[in-house]
Design a protein around this nucleic acid. Structure first.
Lengths: 183, 183
DNA sequence: TGTACATCAGTGAACGCGCGTTCACTGATGTAC
DNA sequence: TGTACATCAGTGAACGCGCGTTCACTGATGTAC
């Protein structure tokens, strides 16, 4: 049956939120039916909300980056640039982060899959990356350009370390994280 | 019809080699039928060679790491530790590497997918990573432990940079690679 | 060395399954009067 | 404000497709005598 406009908008938001979690947990292959079910709906109604699964993926990748970027901003606001970025880095490279796939950084959890995805997904992904670099640039010395480059390198190291750690046996994972925490 | 033992062994090697290329190009979802076809065989014979698709994935991830690790060793042998590692790093972070998925580093091309794969795949993956860290440790100063940690960080940065660059729009990709080449 | 037979790598059809997407239908909501 | 009707979010069955895996079959290879 038809539902009110407010209800419809709530459903839409729930679908994106469910997808943002499920794709991080299971990858881009997370099924439309499972996403809809996690949002408390049935799969048939999906196309009332999105043109295609790819459109949902784009929206939910954006939402996932939003989450991570605002967490970083929150830390910077609370602790200042230097300590805020350091706290973010420590949490990113923590053992705990390894296990919490569903709220993890999209780059660390979807990166290689998005690399093979169609262009619109990459555009969204790239926008998320630039947002993170921008926020990370709050810390550091030198010109704005130098700080951006340092932030980009910093992000690459964090993402690479977590990607490798998650894909490896526990011992190798530990070595990789420990080495990168020392930076 | 039955073929000779030598022919059989050649088929086996061709299947692994084809898989090592195809999974890097298309991800772990590359189909058994496509792998067999690339090896000049039909899909029905696959289970004469492997117990399951996962067994093939493990073998071909190992083979892909072998390729990359021997390329690094070759450079070190030819140019010495410092220049050899530098040449490897430059090639890893080159625009050219971004496009050559099928001969790329498994970590940069399969990392997030292997993160969700069963344990045996991660063990193989971790072994490949340790081999690369080991080889990269040839360069650098300090104790063996310090050199290993530096090599691990170096590898994490390279992998993260390429993962992010491939998953992003071209402009963001360029910024990320440029920043990491400056290291 | 030759012969008879068992083995088994390779073939191609078939299986069951999960997927993205479509569709006819339902009935509460929104709208026109 | 009340009524009649069009709209459309949500449902659940159905579609076509590709996948990993199984299977009966073929015929050259390997082996036992």
């Amino acid at each position: 049956m038809r539902v009110s406009r407010e209800e419809r908008d709530r459903s839409h938001a729930r679908i994106i939120a469910s997808a943002a979690r499920l794709i991080r947990e299971r990858g881009l292959g997370a099924s439309v039916a499972d996403v809809m079910s996690a949002a408390g709906l049935t799969h048939g109604g999906f196309y009332n909300h999105f043109d295609s699964k790819d459109a949902l993926l784009a929206a939910s990748i954006g939402a996932a980056f939003d989450e991570v970027a605002s967490e970083l901003s929150r830390r910077i606001k609370a602790l200042g640039p230097e300590k805020g970025v350091a706290a973010f880095r420590a949490s990113y490279l923590s053992d705990r982060h390894l296990d919490r796939l569903e709220i993890s950084c999209p780059a660390a959890v979807l990166g290689t899959e998005v690399g093979r995805a169609p262009e619109p997904l990459k555009t969204r992904f790239g926008a998320g990356i630039r947002r993170l670099i921008e926020a990370l640039s709050a810390d550091g010395k030198g010109s704005a350009q130098q700080r951006r480059a340092m932030a980009a390198r910093d992000l690459a190291t964090m993402v690479g370390a977590v990607v490798i750690a998650r894909a490896s046996d526990p011992e190798t994972a530990r070595e990789m994280l420990r080495a990168c925490r020392e930076s």
